[in-house]
Design a protein around this nucleic acid. Structure first.
Length: 567
RNA sequence: CGGGGUGUAGCUCAGUAUGGUUAGAGUACUUGGUUUGGGACCAAGGGGCCGAAGGUUCGAGUCCUUUCACCCCGACCA
């Protein structure tokens, strides 16, 4: 393509609200423009990148035996009512009526549609397994879209669904999809981690996220220093502490602790490590029809992990409570301990099971207990893993240390089991002629988010640095001075040669100055720019490598061969 | 959904406390000229319902009311 002809509106300034590099550079380099909150147009360059990513996904899905379909974007709300998700998804589902007053939604994900497609069409175990996927625009009416393509309301996602006759077969497919997803991300040239994750609202067991590592990532992930273990902070596990501080020695007793309310104050007051204190985090736990106050107890050195807490209580949601609400049910904020079980439901962190030598609130204004032995609660209290892993904690699988890093969630795979097939009555006949719901898996990958993720991981102050697999064009031929006939001649010749060879090449034939065109090339991020400029009189041109930002001199006669070697 | 902010040229923004010629700058765009290795310079141009509706006033970008949109922090987020 000739740069003078292609629609690439680059600009010096980014939209005022853009904060992430991907948002800034994709806007400035003319890949995307914003239309409304969370809605973007993809311009020619972005479209090329998207197609490349889609091609790689298609290729790997093909190899893994998955089949591509495309389901309608507008979907009948009835299906969502049938699965019960019309309530759960809430306002994120964009609903509207057609001229006949029938209610429809714009698909935010397609479990229902895919199950509906397969049910009553696949009816025998002989036709299983089956893996169907699509790459399609999705719509979620996010409360707060932000970060450009990273979190739009309209976005492109590859979503796949597999159907199996047995759990073992689902496990096999799940592993195969994980392997395929890894191949895709490797081919795209991304640095990523596969991490254990919370299953979220969609339900199911076995859930892994594919995280592209980038400082701007919205998710915190814990990774082990020694083994492959990685997990979203929401699901991160840990082994018991290796170095346990020396235990304070004290007989069980009640102590006057006036105004000592926080863990810091408490640890300071008794001169003990916070490890030996008990922290109470009170929350209001929301269920489908009701809510209640639940007291969560963790060690003073730990924090409550709310997703774990919600899972431990089967809650739909967890919200903060005020001190006033606690007083109303007879609790003393700042002095709440786990020994009185009668005022509210308790959940105690598993790490406190059988713990001794503790200091905790006495449920009495200005008093704490010391020398507390929680073994008395071992059989009566409810213990669960509700504490958030900390940096420096011990890996649950080896003796390595956990550290935190930020990641962009670009893929999520789950074992759904029969969650959807059961409610939607999608069944097949097994070997014994018995009717069974399909055992399902689901595999998502954010295509438009991947475009942003590539830039988050591959950019510098001057712009994008596309990886070889994602670059909209591999080579940019820059004619420094368009009035110099020799430069134009060589540029045109090389342009023709590269096109002949099937190289995706751009010819910058604009009547602009050298600096302007270089800045533009860097902003867009072509992997290689051939600079045909003033050195041509000496028979030399240069290759600018966007990755290394180095320029290499090459004899003009050899430039075609040199470029072909690089690709 | 709570709290806050902003809507003026394609883009980034002044101007609004105190109403008053024809509404500005930078950038981008058009034309001519100079320039040609890191977003150049000179000159001449085109481009605005000042988010929308209503009101106050002789007069509103500016004051009042309503409304819409976008953004930021938080909650939420397969």
């Amino acid at each position: 393509m000739r740069r003078s002809r292609e629609f690439i509106p680059t600009s010096k300034e980014a939209p005022s609200d853009a904060t992430l590099p991907s948002h800034i550079f994709l806007s400035r380099a003319g890949f995307i423009t914003q239309v409304a909150a969370g809605l973007y147009n993809y311009l020619p360059l972005a479209k090329r990148v998207i197609k490349k990513i889609e091609n790689i996904i298609n290729d790997e899905m093909q190899k893994a035996g998955a089949q591509e379909v495309e389901l309608s974007f507008v979907t009948p709300a009835e299906l969502w009512a049938e699965s019960g998700r019309i309530e759960k998804f809430g306002k994120e589902l964009l609903r509207f009526k057609d001229r006949k007053e029938n209610l429809f939604v714009l698909g935010p994900t397609h479990e229902e549609m895919m199950v509906n497609l397969v049910r009553n069409r696949v009816t025998s175990y002989k036709n299983l397994p089956l893996n169907l996927y699509q790459i399609k625009t999705k719509f979620r009416d996010e409360a707060r879209p932000r970060f450009g393509l990273m979190r739009g309301r309209e976005f492109i996602m590859k979503d796949g669904y597999s159907f199996h006759a047995s759990v073992e077969d689902l496990d096999r497919e799940f592993d195969a999809m994980e392997a395929a997803y890894k191949k895709i991300l490797n081919r795209l040239g991304l640095d990523f981690r596969v991490v254990e994750a919370d299953s979220g609202a969609i339900g199911g067991s076995g859930s892994k996220e594919l995280m592209v590592l980038a400082d701007s990532g919205e998710d915190t992930i814990a990774v082990c220093s020694k083994c492959e273990y990685g997990a979203n902070i929401e699901a991160a596990k840990r082994s018991a502490r290796a170095a346990i501080p020396e235990a304070p020695e004290a007989e069980f007793n009640k102590f006057l602790t006036p105004d000592v309310k926080t863990i810091d104050e408490l640890a300071e007051f008794f001169k003990v490590d916070p490890y030996y204190t008990v922290k109470c985090v009170a929350k209001r736990v929301i269920y489908e029809d009701e809510s209640e106050i639940v007291l969560f107890f963790v060690r003073g050195c730990d924090n409550l992990q709310e997703v774990k807490a919600a899972n431990a209580t089967d809650a739909l949601d967890i919200v903060d409570v005020t001190e006033e609400e606690l007083r109303e049910i007879g609790l003393k904020p700042g002095f709440i301990g786990p020994l009185d079980q009668d005022k509210a439901k308790h959940v105690i962190d598993a790490d406190l099971k059988d713990a001794t030598a503790l200091i905790c609130g006495a449920n009495e204004q200005d008093y704490h207990f010391v020398g507390v032995d929680l073994t008395v609660l071992s059989d009566v209290a409810y213990f669960a893993d509700i504490a958030e892993a900390n940096e420096g904690d011990v890996c649950p699988y080896c003796e390595g240390e956990l550290s935190f890093t930020k990641g962009i969630e670009v893929g999520h795979i789950f074992k759904l089991g029969t969650t959807y097939s059961a409610v939607l009555k999608a069944e097949f006949l097994d070997e014994n002629g018995k009717s069974q719901p399909f055992i399902m898996g689901t595999y998502g990958m954010g295509v438009s988010r991947l475009v942003a993720a590539v830039i988050e991981q591959h950019h510098d102050d001057n712009g994008c640095k596309w990886t070889q697999a994602t670059a909209p064009y591999m080579v940019n031929i820059m004619i420094s001075n368009i009035k110099d006939e020799a430069q134009v001649e060589l540029g045109e010749k090389l342009y023709g040669q590269l096109q002949e060879s099937g190289v995706e090449v751009m010819l910058d034939d604009r009547k602009e100055r050298f600096g302007f065109k270089m800045k533009d090339a860097e902003l867009i991020g072509f992997p290689y720019t051939v600079i045909i400029g003033k050195e041509l009189v000496n028979g030399q041109v240069q290759i600018y490598n966007r990755q290394t930002t180095e320029k290499t001199a090459v004899a003009a006669d050899d430039i075609y061969t040199k470029i072909m070697e690089l690709l």
